[in-house]
Design a binder for these strands. Structure first.
Length: 425
DNA sequence: TCTGGGGTCCTAGGACCC
DNA sequence: TCTGGGGTCCTAGGACCC
């Protein structure tokens, strides 16, 4: 039986989320911006039609935005994560095997589902649209890479009506489609390898499909070899339906305003380490090291530049916010240099292991460990029920002048009592 | 004034061991 | 006139994705 893997992808996801609560924005040009209102990270079709590129700095687009009446939102991840969860749990009902690939994409295994797959996918689209209000497109094929490509065609090519099933097309039809698509559109082919492939005379998806997998492995790596096999319908990538624990946990952020003050950096690092420790405990893991990182703004070429990081090993794996913050602060003081205008700081947890496999040592202090465990569990429970940041370390500070800017954020319509979307009486 | 944040996988190269 | 060969483990860095 032919494998049938579907990729369901939300259209302009962040913009679509904003429109769910602002239906008046349907048909109007809308963008969503990254943290600090820095870059454009989601564009409505109207904005794409105007030629605005993905990830461009927003301040460079101000004029264009004014001219065309583009409406901008700061990113509201709380809202997007909540709508994403709703979409994903609905999708789960359509297949026994689901991989949630990103906040707005999910693979579903449709192999063995007897219905006509195109009609089945249309039912998926209608369900998501009706229950959550988000438009999605569906691509279906015999490998994940092909399913991504089918989804691309479903989005770009109106004749498919937002669903494209490669398994229902002939080899000739597929090759005609592939010949017209740039190799850069293939999942896993970035700008760098696209340039190299072009140099080898490989320009279209069809060129890549017909290329020698062995030769590409010699020139690049197994990654490119797999891509060619996947394009030929040989599935090399399985559906990952269990979410593996993170092997590294990063929390980093640009500041709303540059700062050269150590106390500001200390507050930021404590805040990030706190957040990272929460994520660590959520997946019931421990870390044996924390890396701290600071840097100036590399885009300000004329200003003196500095960037440095340091890995602070911990005496034993832990998930205790206090120990992680303590180590992070030590690291920060070691790499901090006065006289620079810092733009960003971050922390990264490494050496992550499941809490259940904590190594026993001669010097284990069971009482201290139990106390730490109880304290952290209590902290998490309170912050979960009363709102994130209800209880935090003093080091995080209360005057956060360095914190990020979000001038155009919409309301947290679904997760905050005071901001709920209510029907007019 | 003003350029995101959080991940994964792969490879090369060094350290170390026998 | 000048130093083996092979294996493993770890880390840094590149490339890519959303």
């Amino acid at each position: 039986m032919t494998r049938a893997i579907a990729l369901v992808d939300c259209n302009n996801f962040f913009v679509s989320c904003e429109r769910v609560f602002r239906p008046d924005l349907e048909g109007k040009p809308v963008v969503v911006l990254s943290n600090n209102d820095g870059c454009v990270v989601s564009r409505s079709q109207e904005v794409k039609n105007l030629g605005m590129k993905m990830a461009v700095p927003w301040y460079q687009m101000r004029d264009m935005a004014r001219r065309h009446g583009i409406i901008a939102f700061s990113s509201n991840y709380t809202l997007y994560a909540d709508l994403s969860n709703r979409v994903m749990s609905l999708l789960a009902q359509f297949s026994p095997d689901q991989e949630v690939y990103s906040i707005d994409e999910s693979f579903l295994d449709l192999t063995g589902i007897p219905d006509n797959h195109t009609q089945y996918a249309q039912r998926i689209r209608e369900t998501i649209r009706r229950c959550v209000g988000i438009p999605v497109c569906v691509g279906i094929a015999s490998s994940k890479t092909l399913a991504k490509l089918a989804n691309h065609i479903a989005k770009k090519n109106p004749r498919f009506g937002s669903v494209c099933d490669f398994n229902a097309l002939s080899e000739k039809e597929l090759n005609e489609l592939f010949a017209a698509i740039d190799v850069r559109e293939v999942w896993g082919v970035g700008r760098r390898s696209a340039d190299s492939l072009n140099g080898m005379g490989i320009h279209s998806v069809l060129d890549l499909k017909r290329a020698s997998a062995k030769r590409l492995r010699e020139k690049f790596s197994v990654v490119q070899e797999r891509i060619v096999n996947e394009l030929n319908g040989v599935a090399c990538l399985e559906l990952d339906d269990v979410v593996p624990d993170k092997q590294q946990i990063i929390c980093s952020r640009s500041f709303g305003a540059l700062t050269s003050l150590l106390p500001d950096l200390e507050q930021a690092v404590v805040a990030y380490a706190t957040r990272a420790a929460e994520k660590l405990r959520q997946q019931h893991s421990l870390a044996d090291g924390i890396q701290v990182y600071i840097r100036t703004n590399p885009h300000k070429g004329r200003d003196p530049q500095y960037q440095q990081s340091v890995l602070m090993p911990l005496p034993e794996p832990t998930d205790d916010t206090r120990l992680l913050c303590h180590a992070a602060l030590h690291g920060l003081r070691r790499i901090y240099r006065a006289g620079y205008a810092y733009q960003k700081a971050g922390v990264m947890l490494s050496g992550i292991i499941p809490a259940s496999t904590r190594p026993r040592t001669l010097f284990d202090n069971a009482v201290a460990q139990e106390k730490s465990h109880t304290l952290m569990r209590t902290l998490d429970r309170i912050n979960r029920s009363m709102g994130s940041g209800t209880i935090k370390l003093l080091g995080e500070g209360t005057d956060t002048s360095w914190a990020m800017r979000r001038d155009h954020r919409s309301k947290r319509y679904t997760t905050e009592w005071s901001e709920l979307a209510l029907c007019p009486a």
